[in-house]
């Protein structure tokens, strides 16, 4: 089995290059995840750089591009990937080292949509009562709050590739939508108005790369569609 990894060390390389590793097929079981393989390779070659933490797909550290698709290495089975696996860093981000990318723009875009609950001042200060929410209202948040900020979606989105500093990208818009539809948030109109710009919500073209890439099975494209509807409805 061949593993091709795009390597880059800013201290010694002028540009990224592809390194080929060979692995015995017998070392790969039916249930071997890609991260285990990378950990094996790191024992052979301690200079190999990649991030990881929880190893079960909830922390979002190890987003990478494998055979052209963005995924989390810890929940990606090796066997279905074939005999030749090409691993690249997440596209569109500056490469720091090997598979480690600089995600600052991604985090900034997340921060820019003000992804925090702005509830009623009075209710939010009451330590004796929760802000009530019906199960139906709460159900609307399913599919939005589970995002793990792995950036698999945004780094597969052409609109984000072109304008990562202007366009929030699918992850940030998914977060924006999560607070727009939260019944406890009282700033819905402000939120909608701030997203009503050519380079914000309406830069999304719904090509749905984000939805295809999301390792948690979320659908940012549909959430952005919902956002657009809400913005238009708010206008009229």
């Amino acid at each position: 089995m061949q593993i091709l990894i795009d390597r880059y060390n800013p201290q010694s390389d002028s540009a990224p290059y592809t390194q080929t590793y060979h692995l015995n097929d017998a070392e790969v079981g039916e249930d071997t995840m890609l991260l285990e393989l990378l950990q094996q390779l790191r024992i052979q070659d301690p200079t190999l750089g990649f991030r990881s933490s929880c190893q079960e797909g909830v922390c979002g550290s190890d987003g990478m591009n494998v055979n052209g698709n963005n995924c989390l290495s810890c929940i990606t089975l090796v066997k279905p990937l074939g005999d030749k696996i090409h691993i690249r860093p997440l596209p569109s981000f500056p490469i720091i080292k090997d598979l480690i990318v600089d995600m600052q723009l991604f985090y900034d875009q997340y921060k820019n949509v003000e992804p925090f609950l702005k509830g009623d001042e009075h209710l939010s200060r009451d330590p004796e009562h929760e802000i009530l929410q019906t199960p139906e209202e709460r159900e609307k948040l399913d599919g939005s709050y589970e995002c793990i900020l792995c950036a698999c979606c945004s780094s597969s989105c052409p609109s984000f590739w072109w304008n990562p500093d202007l366009f929030p990208g699918p992850a940030a818009l998914l977060a924006a939508n999560r607070f727009v539809i939260d019944s406890r948030d009282i700033t819905t109109i402000d939120r909608l108005e701030s997203l009503d710009k050519a380079e914000k919500a309406f830069r999304c073209r719904h090509i749905q790369n984000c939805t295809a890439a999301c390792p948690k099975g979320l659908n940012p494209s549909r959430a952005i569609q919902g956002l657009k509807h809400a913005i238009v409805k708010n206008r009229s």
């Binding site: 609950l117 509830g119 009562h129 019906t134 209202e137 709460r138 948040l141 939260d182």
Partner: peptide, 22 residues
């Protein structure tokens, strides 16, 4: 009790009961 309600006010999407409580 206060800690959990405070978390709720921070935006934690707790699952809900029919009466709207956590």
């Amino acid at each position: 009790n206060q800690i959990v309600r405070e978390l709720e006010h921070f935006g934690v999407p707790f699952s809900r009961l029919e009466n709207g409580k956590i």
